[in-house]
């Protein structure tokens, strides 16, 4: 065991076991949290919820899936969005395609 190779391989084997342990632990935690998850899904179904309560600052961040289209500018045309979460929510795919592939003249048609 005093040889460096043996020490290194033992260390690597232990790290490998810890790596495999992550997967085992994930299964364990997953099973343990199943009750909570079912309760949450039941609440979503009971209250007909549509969104996660992650970003509560504005209606378009509280319910991103229900927000008006172009909601960042919905209050008036110059109302730039002013919530940090808004800047972290991606622009709609169509808008990205329009700016990358289609010229302004074409979009106006």
């Amino acid at each position: 065991m005093s040889r460096p190779a043996d020490r290194a391989l033992t260390f690597l084997a232990l790290a490998g076991i810890a790596f495999a342990g992550c997967f085992v632990d994930a299964v364990r935690l997953h099973a343990a949290a199943a009750g909570d998850a079912n309760g949450m899904t039941a609440l979503v179904a009971q209250l007909r919820l549509t969104d996660l309560a992650l970003f509560t600052e504005a209606r378009y961040t509280r319910h991103p899936s229900q927000a008006d289209l172009h909601s960042a500018y919905q209050d008036h045309p110059l109302a730039l969005e002013h919530f940090p979460t808004g800047s972290l929510i991606s622009p709609p795919a169509g808008l990205l395609q329009a700016t990358s592939g289609v010229g302004a003249g074409e979009t106006a048609k």
Binding site: C22, A26, H30, A33, A53, T56, P84, T85
Partner: peptide, 17 residues
């Protein structure tokens, strides 16, 4: 990663690898 809000939920993520 989580973002932030005044009323931020406390939650423990279930591992999904």
């Amino acid at each position: 990663l989580k973002g932030w809000a005044v009323l931020y939920p406390r939650f423990q993520l279930t591992p999904q690898i």
